[in-house]
Nucleic acid binder design. Structure first.
Lengths: 143, 143
DNA sequence: ATCTATACTTACCCAAAAGAGAGTGTCAGT
DNA sequence: ACTGACACTCTCTTTTGGGTAAGTATAGAT
């Protein structure tokens, strides 16, 4: 898959949602790239870290782990590194002993948090309706 | 974990993003529930199916598979069933031979598509910046 | 001299998720 | 009689995600 992206393709991706999307043909390569990105960026732990840092501001390793609860050191390190690599957060090492490392979201990280808000709100608003739909479906198919 | 949700908790979830979230204490149970929901609803294949059905309208099994590309029958069936159960799409079986089954998004499915738009747009807008961040990170850490 | 705190890394392991591929039922067409 | 179309379902294998536990470095406290 081609990792480069033309201006036109980005314009398409942007236009995708804002316009009436009746017969807008989106280049499959844009889709592939955006999906690959979403797959990495929107995983469980990343979302939780974003949430914690959004509400807590700058925090250090152990405090993030406590705030999330139920994450292993391994997974937290992994997630944090990935997010740093993607430019979603900055990692500041204070060379003291014992070690002290701070994490905070970048502007891009903040903007991702905002983008997620739509989905987050949707989930809050539709939670009950989904649970109802599930109950009905299960009742229907149990027969 | 308690699967029920009070009116107050839903209000909190809704308020979470719209307000200044400085020191808004969100009930951890709301978070747990919304995350569970997002985990199921926002997975890779569900997003792709929503995308395809949003642009393509009512479609049948094989056409969806073609449009997505690279999905196994098993995963498509599984995703579609789950979405039906959650009330995101309706499955219409025409009892003819060979079988003919149509899928289309419900209103709730459409609204989820809209909610995803924020993230989708974000991905389109930040793709290049992320790729740049990655290159820089890799250059930095390769030393 | 030993313990503690902090932020990791490494090695090993398991379970769940996903992919590959074959099988199923039925009728219409050749 | 055989093939193909469609929407699956079943089984088997591979991949991935993620947990546990141990190790590392070093200053300061006990």
């Amino acid at each position: 898959m081609n990792p480069s992206l033309t201006k036109k393709q980005i314009a398409q991706a942007k236009a995708y949602c804002t316009s009436e999307r009746a017969d807008l043909e989106v280049d499959p390569r844009v889709e592939a790239l955006v999906n690959e990105l979403l797959g990495r960026v929107a995983d469980k732990w990343t979302m939780l870290v974003i949430e914690v840092l959004t509400t807590g501001g700058e925090m250090r390793f152990t405090r993030i782990a406590e705030a999330i609860g139920g994450i292993s050191q391994k997974m937290l390190t992994q997630t944090l590194r990935q997010m740093e690599r993607d430019g979603l957060l900055v990692r500041t090492v204070h060379p003291v002993i014992p070690p002290h490392v701070d994490y905070r979201l970048t502007k891009m990280g903040d903007s991702l948090a905002e983008a997620f808000c739509g989905v987050w709100q949707w989930a809050g608003q539709h939670l009950e309706r989904i649970e109802k739909a599930r109950r009905e479906f299960d009742a229907r198919t149990a027969k």
